[in-house]
């Protein structure tokens, strides 16, 4: 690891502040004028790498942060009130009842396959459904749901720069993650049904960084990275700090809608592997499928073979809608992103 963990929370906090102040003013006015200051923000899934970054990014400026996670966050900042609860349980509603949040950032998703698939489905789908119900029952005014660009799926006939109206095709070739597409659909339905709640559904691209735990991060950090022989799709990347920034901007501007959050650009997969210090090991597709699907079935490898399509076809998105709505511009270049995960 190139970046030492001594770059602790405090430093990161200042860094995020500096990054925010360095941001140039948006070129055009966001459609909704900057909303009134947020008072209480509830963040679910706060104890994960990305959750912590979001908390640190929006902490401070006249807002109180309530954190919810199944696992505790040791050494969380003093201004964050932690509740260790499972979002599937009734106790979760008590958090809404007692803390009365004005805004919610929903980020409590299970995206890996190491656990029980039933639990995964329950946390993702049932958890989201509950959360949306409580939000309405307890008068939440702003909502950000952190989905991901993977919901579009990687298909050969995908256009480069998929926009927000594109269908969510991921389960066509990757049925194991249909719950994440379902979460996105649930949130979108909520968005249309409750126009009075400013809801932003964010679909960021491959997120890399020092703190975030992601499948793409684990994949690209390997010394020898398996790829599919004869395929080298374009991939977009975004830095974890920029995702936190996007969440903060969506909250601040009260953006309402579904938004792709694209990073600074796209490079072929093999360039990304090279730039992060790994070596690509191309494997013929038939062999890769046979081996990895068996390993997955026997629980020896935790990524289903459906994920291979993301190593074959592009799943690149058009982020201009979010830029127009909030003035978002990623601060971290591709070089910065690759440097943050370099071996």
């Amino acid at each position: 690891m190139a970046r030492a963990p001594v770059e602790g929370p405090e430093q990161l906090f200042h860094f995020a502040e500096a990054a925010a102040s360095a941001r140039v003013a948006p070129a055009f006015e966001p459609p909704r004028a900057v909303a009134e200051p947020i008072e209480t923000v509830l963040i679910t899934g706060i104890a994960g790498g990305q959750g912590r970054l979001i908390a640190r990014r929006i902490a401070g400026a006249r807002c109180r942060i309530i954190g919810v996670d199944r696992t505790p966050w040791e050494g969380h900042p003093a201004d964050v009130r932690m509740h260790v609860v499972d979002i599937r349980k009734r106790k979760f509603e008590d958090v809404f009842r007692t803390e009365r949040p004005d805004a919610v950032v929903h980020h409590a998703f299970v995206r890996h396959f190491r656990g029980d698939p039933e639990v995964r489905h329950e946390v993702n789908v049932l958890g989201t459904k509950r959360l949306l119900e409580y939000a309405i029952a307890h008068g939440v005014k702003r909502m950000v749901v952190l989905s991901s660009a993977y919901v579009y799926g990687a298909l050969p006939d995908n256009p480069y720069y998929v926009d927000e109206e594109f269908p969510l095709n991921v389960s066509r070739t990757y049925p194991e993650v249909r719950d994440l597409a379902e979460v996105d659909t649930l949130a979108t339905a909520f968005l249309w049904r409750h126009p009075d709640v400013a809801t932003a559904i964010l679909r960021p691209v491959n997120t890399l960084g020092y703190y975030v735990q992601s499948a793409i991060g684990r994949y690209i950090r390997q010394r020898y990275v398996p790829t599919i022989l004869g395929f080298n799709p374009m991939m977009q990347f975004i830095h974890e700090e920029d995702v936190a920034e996007a969440v903060a901007l969506a909250l601040q501007t009260g953006a309402h809608g579904v938004f792709n959050v694209a990073g600074p650009g796209a490079v072929p997969l093999k360039v990304a592997i090279r730039e992060t210090g790994g070596s690509a090991v191309p494997i013929p597709e038939t062999i890769a499928r046979a081996v990895f699907s068996r390993l997955f079935r026997f629980g020896l490898y935790h990524t289903p073979p459906g994920a291979m399509d993301f190593l074959k076809y592009p799943c690149t998105i058009d982020g201009r809608g979010f830029e127009r709505a909030t003035g978002f511009k990623p601060l971290f270049s591709l070089e910065d992103i690759f440097a943050s995960v370099r071996h």
Partner: peptide, 22 residues
């Protein structure tokens, strides 16, 4: 895009899948 190597050659030389959005 489903043909190995051809997909890459096509994209690197400037072509794309013929969708409306592209």
């Amino acid at each position: 895009p489903t043909v190995p190597w051809v997909n890459e050659l096509m994209v690197r030389t400037g072509s794309v899948v013929g969708t409306r959005k592209n």
